[in-house]
Amino acid sequence: MTTLSTHALDAALGVPAAALAVTLFDPQGRQMTAARTDADGRVAFDLELGEGTHVLHFDTGAYFFAADRDTFYPEVAVSFAVDPEQSHLHVALLLSPYSYTTYKGS
Rank of each mutant, 00 (worst) to 15 (best):
M1P: 13
T2V: 11
L4W: 08
D10I: 00
D10R: 11
A12N: 08
L13I: 00
V15D: 09
A17C: 05
A18C: 04
L20W: 04
A21V: 06
A21I: 01
V22Y: 02
L24Q: 04
F25V: 00
F25S: 11
G29N: 08
G29R: 09
R30Q: 14
M32T: 10
T33H: 10
A35K: 08
R36W: 07
D38T: 07
D38G: 09
A39L: 10
A39M: 11
G41V: 02
F45V: 03
F45S: 06
F45C: 07
F45Q: 01
F45E: 08
D46N: 13
D46Y: 00
L47G: 11
E48G: 13
E48S: 13
L49R: 12
G50D: 12
E51A: 15
G52E: 07
T53Y: 05
T53S: 10
F58L: 05
F58K: 02
D59V: 03
D59E: 15
G61C: 05
G61E: 05
A62R: 15
A62Q: 12
Y63W: 03
Y63I: 00
Y63C: 06
F64C: 04
F64T: 02
F65Y: 10
A67I: 00
D68K: 13
D68M: 12
R69T: 08
R69M: 15
D70A: 15
F72Y: 10
P74Y: 02
E75C: 01
A77T: 08
F80N: 08
V82F: 05
D83M: 09
D83F: 05
P84F: 01
P84T: 10
E85Q: 13
Q86K: 14
S87D: 14
H88S: 12
H88Q: 12
L89R: 12
L94V: 03
L95R: 04
S96P: 01
P97E: 07
Y98G: 15
Y98T: 14
Y98F: 14
S99L: 10
S99H: 12
T101N: 13
T101L: 13
T102N: 10
T102A: 12
Y103M: 07
Y103H: 14
Y103G: 12
K104F: 13
